[in-house]
Design a protein around this nucleic acid. Sequence first.
DNA 1: CATGAAAGCGCC
DNA 2: AAAGGGCGCTTTCATG
Length: 628
Amino acid sequence: MIFTISNLTQIQNFQKDLESTSIVPLDVESNSLDRLTALWITLQLKLGENTYIFHIPEFGVKNITYVTDLLKSSNKLIVGHNLKYDIGIIKVNTGIMLTNLHDTFTSEVIIFAGVGDFYPSLRDLVKKYCNTILDKESRELFINYKLGDILTEQMIQYAALDVQYVEKIRDEQLKLVDERKLNRTYELENKLVAVTTSMELNGVKIDSSKWAGLTQSALDDTRRLEEEIKDEIVTRLPRFENAYGACKAIGISKDADGNNLQTIKHSTPLKYITEYDFIVDWIRRNINVQSNAQIKHILQLAYNLDVTDTNEKTLLLLKNPPEIVSKILSFRERAKKQTTYGDNILDLIHKKTGRVHANFNQNGTSTGRYSSSQPNLQNIPRENDYRSCFIAEDGYDIITIDYDQQEYRLATGERKIIDAYLAGKDMHTLTASIINNVPLDKVTKEQRTNAKPVNFGLFYGATVWGLKYNLGISLEEAQRIYDAVLGGIPTFIGARNKFGDEILKRMYSKTLLGRRRYFKGQDRFEDTKEYQKFITKIKREGFNHIIQGTGADITKTALNLIYYENPFGEENLKIILTEHDEIVCEVRKEYSQPAFEFIKSKMLQAEQPFLGEIPASISGTISNCWSK
DNA sequence: CATGAAAGCGCC
DNA sequence: AAAGGGCGCTTTCATG
């Protein structure tokens, strides 16, 4: 039976049913995807055979808060799809965060990590597990709902539909969780859904005038550099018969007015621009410094550079780079700041809160890490100029804490690595001591710095050829370094093969928590070369998953500990960002010091069990802004 | 005009 | 034989 509830006198049956069930399928309908401003229209709860639909505008916020509190205090298990949305609406309107959850979305993603969809919809899961087609997303019916509207019969039917299947989906998912021994990952991730919700709703404050200043300066530089680059290019280009020839040679596909030149006819007017000055003028106006294809042709034509691409690494490794190269790189750096890190970030400041509420996709990666979007707060430039634009609200501080070499500490159980960390040294110092054949405490700063990219490369599975290319050294030197590291700390490279065979056999890798990443098989290969590539790729990715994914396990465990054990109250300690091995919180000033100690201790507590003898280590700051 | 791939680059 | 893991955003360019 479906019951629509619009006032308090109608909830007697609901309360009776609630007492006799511990699992509650839940869904929310509203008129917008923005949880902070959406009009909450219905709350649907399925209790046994009965479905209760609360019409919120009639039922009232005070009463729905009472109902939510019943769910929370009786610790019902809430089952729903992508609950980040629903519990967000509930939190915004009632102040209550539901935390005992089975999220069919999150659960599905971790069960099929690596081979499944990053965004399975409820409809997908209903089809898969219940063999039923949900013919319409009920949400569409509610978009035009206005305050004072009644619930139509159609709205009621569709709203009810969304809570009919999730329990069955949960049953099937739990079987898979069990089969795949994902229990710890399952617990971690479902607990984390409320933390992610809280983090997104908290948002982060931005000093917009400072940010706008950075953008303006980037714009000024971009324009200046563009002119300088064009000026220089036109003096270096060979002579062309006419503008058409220049256009073809440089690969200009669109002119400055946006006209498509690809479809250009043989009898194009460009052919009649033959005067030298006119050709130069035409080129000057129509080359696009942002077009990498054009830049490539220009470097080849005008500078005799044998380049197949123009990315930064390629350009930096050039033997005698012309001056234009550094100008191009500066231009790109400034242009990136002006576009990706420009006004569009300010456009995302929420009108109601004045803060930026990025999306944190809890399993937006195949390894178990978060991803972030709109905006991506996990790739803000590291420079203090940029990070310091993320500021604390009046009366608050920002606490930034990150793990020291989280992934290297997880890399192997190698004795030498353990001893190095126990001695207060780190992975880069150790590798430097091995490459240069000097004792740990004789390693110079420069040697350590030089060892960083070696570690970086080898850690991600670089071959000798990879080292040569990426470090810009000879093959012999690359081989020497590779052999030295392999000899000195064999498992740093060797572990990949050790685990690799197992990964290949099972076609999944697993982290120390048990989180899995599956790999897609391939039926047939044209030749053995292709097959070799396929194998080494899986070994690389699988090994990386063990490390990167365990890192994610640790950081996510810490987030849960901080959120659920927060002794200061959620208004006094808010988690606002996470960046893989880093957690950023906003804390009321009077609690800054104890909160700092609290967060540190929780992060260490989360990490230590995964490290064995190696000591967990973090570092952080209390500041008025996000800091390095 | 819309769409998707590819190049490039920001972060861990 | 041969070019390190994981992301998201912006732009260009080809295609239909």
